[in-house]
Amino acid sequence: MEHLLTVKDLNVTYVNKNRRVMAVRNVNMAVDKGDSLGIVGESGSGKSTLAMALLRLHPKGTEITGQALFEGKDLLAITKEEMNELRWVKIAVVFQKAMNALSPVHRISEQIEDIYRVHCPKASAEEIKTRTLELLKLVNLPERVYNLYPHEMSGGMLQRVAIAISLLHHPQLLIFDEATTALDVVTQGQILKEILEMEKTLATTRIMITHDMSVVATTCNKVAVMYAGELMEFGMVKDVLTHPHHPYTQGLQGSFPSLKGDNKKLVSIPGFLPDLSKECKGCVFAPRCSHATERCHKEKPPMVKTGEAGGAACWLCIGGEENGK
């Protein structure tokens, strides 16, 4: 089956005068139509960098290699103009800090009109308003929001506005870059619920970038776990979260409290992220891994198949020597 988005050997390197930070290394992943993929990892794991690279919104002087095929077009190779045509019509994004996601000195209506007219230059103000009010209703916001300034709204409202704006042109792929991270748990829960509701009527594919396992568990069907710029494990959410293969995924799980079951002691993964400006010979997680062998420090493990649609990059998963405990 043709994937909606295929990422092949993606490398993103931030180049500075005297430093090269390899923020994303050799990432491969595929997203199918109707999927909701959660990309999880701790801060600095390269998940946002990955999204920014796909959207070509990376800062100047960033080196990107690899491919990102979206409907047969390589997002990383097409011209600026071709990319601009795809933006918002096919691929839209909702950013982390909703509080700053809109210009503070322009009314919401004015900004939406401008954004809408990027792709429909002749659209009338009436038409845009009708469409926006439809979307505002979808995210449970009152109509009066349309004429407000960003500072007149709460964080939750702004996040909903940002989601509504992302849906203006019915995009096929929607990327949420830590979109609910800054919100309180109650508002986050409500918004996640609304997103799921929305998707019943809209046929969108979603990539959810987050560090919150519970967000992935409730709203995604697939998950990709990243660590230090590399993909550690991927697969169906129900498989990965119940039977994680990679020691890092297991560690991540151990650091989140469980609502059901016993009060287990939370375990944090000891150590810190490695220095991404240095080349790493073995497995990037080896220095923090409690199962690491000599081989892990010397050779990079390949991605091996785990289960039906999953994969994990770990020597322990090779040769049936599984480690799920």
């Binding site: 795809l86 933006r87 918002w88 950013f95 503070p104």
Partner: peptide
């Protein structure tokens, strides 16, 4: 961030700057 938002929508750099 809102400038990144505008860029993500495909708005022209000229419009982003001028407005």
């Amino acid at each position: 961030d809102f400038i990144t938002t505008m860029r993500a929508t495909g708005m022209s750099e000229r419009k982003i700057f001028n407005k």
